[in-house]
Structures are given as C-alpha cells and as structure tokens.
C-alpha cells in the first residue's frame, strides 16, 4: 500500500492586516492547526507563499525560521508549555535568551517583571508552574509570548484547558491587547470564544470557507 498524499491545506489565500484579531474555526482535521503552523513558521507550505511582516518566509532554512519565530511571533499553546520547576519570571524571559539583540541581566528581569505585572501576576513572579492555577499559567505563557514584542501573536486553543471563568479572563486580556494594537490570530472550535475576535474564518477540508 503506497502513501497517499494528504492536502492538509489547499488553495488557502488569507490576508491578516496589522491590528486585526482573527479567530480561525473549524472541526478537527479541517486544517486549522496546519494553517496555524504555517503562520507560525513551524511548517513551510509545499507550494505557495507566506509573507510575514513584509518578509517572504518560504525557502528559509531551519535556523532562519527560528530567528523569524523568535522576533516576529509569539506563541500561546493550549497546554501552556511552561518549563516545569522554573519560575514564572524565568519562563517569561526564555524567548529573550534566544534573541541575540535582546538586553541581558537586569533589563531582562525588568521586562519580564513588567509583563508579568501587566498580566496581573506581579505577586507570582517567583512561583513555579506547579504553584499556579491553569489560568495563571496561561497568563505566564502570554507574557512569555509578548517578551520579544512580536508583531504577531498566535494562539492555539488558548482556553482549551481552562474552566469558563479563566477562559473569559484570558479572552478579555486578548481583547485588551488587541485594542492596544496587537495583531492576534487564534485557533478555536468554541463559538463563544471565537466571539471575542473581530473577524472569523471557518475552515473545512483544508479550505477557507467564504
């Protein structure tokens, strides 16, 4: 039995403008995660183009993609993906460790502390993920995503592991960020979560529904 080519995405044309808050919806297998991977420069399309913040991404090698991810994209994951047994502040500082132009030492701490205060965790900076609730962990993850001041914030089911109260908090925060000019693209399958976004895109079988 040979391998069958699967077109996870097919003929997707999508433009996200600066300052937009887009929710990508769709059932599992609809290609929304693949689209997010491409947007996040974790995956490259077999054919086609992707221009991020004026830079064509296609054809870049792994190191160059890593640099683009570091400086232009902030990720928020469903399962937070914080380093265990590591303080909130250190988790937030992590992206800057891989940013050669970033400040070091005190300036690094200051930026992390500023962001943690901004997400309302000013009193939890030295707590480890195990000592934080799900909502708090996700807020640490958001602070981390913002660390390098990226033009694009990508969120993959950011409320998937949270109760409804924490979900609302996170979405309020996203909306606040967006009002301050942050471009956000979020994948979700929950309509009430998608309702926080300004624009909705529905996907099915690798295509964007009109």
């Amino acid at each position: 039995m040979g391998q069958e080519d699967v077109w996870a995405l097919n003929g997707v044309t999508l433009q996200v403008k600066k300052g937009e808050f887009v929710a990508i919806m769709g059932h599992s297998g609809s290609g929304k995660s693949t689209l997010l991977n491409v947007l996040g420069c974790l995956d490259v399309p077999t054919s086609g183009r992707y221009i991020l913040d004026g830079t064509p991404v296609a054809g870049m090698n792994r190191a160059a993609l890593a640099r683009v991810r570091n400086q232009k994209i902030g990720f928020v994951f469903q399962s937070f993906n914080l380093l265990s047994r590591t303080t909130a502040r250190e988790n937030v500082e992590l992206p800057m460790l891989y940013n050669p132009t970033a400040p070091r030492g005190k300036a690094l701490h200051d930026r992390a502390e500023y962001l943690l205060e901004h997400v309302g965790l000013g009193d939890r900076m030295l707590h480890t993920p195990g000592q934080l609730s799900g909502g708090q962990q996700q807020r640490v993850a958001i602070a981390r995503a913002l660390m390098n001041n990226p033009p694009l914030l990508l969120a993959d089911e950011p409320t998937g592991n949270l109760d409804s109260h924490a979900s609302q908090e996170i979405m309020h925060y996203f909306r606040k960020l967006n009002e301050q000019g942050q471009t956000i693209v979020m994948v979700t399958h929950e309509t009430d979560i998608a309702a926080y976004a300004k624009r909705k895109i529905v996907m099915r079988d690798g295509k964007v529904l009109p």
């Binding site: 190191a63 890593a66 380093l83 940013n99």
Partner: peptide, 13 residues
Amino acid sequence: IGLRMAIGAAPVA
C-alpha cells in the same frame, strides 16, 4: 525542546 524551538531556539542552540 519543541517549545524552545517554537520560541526561537535555532537547532544549533
């Protein structure tokens, strides 16, 4: 490792 790569760690890092 996946997280570090996602937030910008190059393979060599």
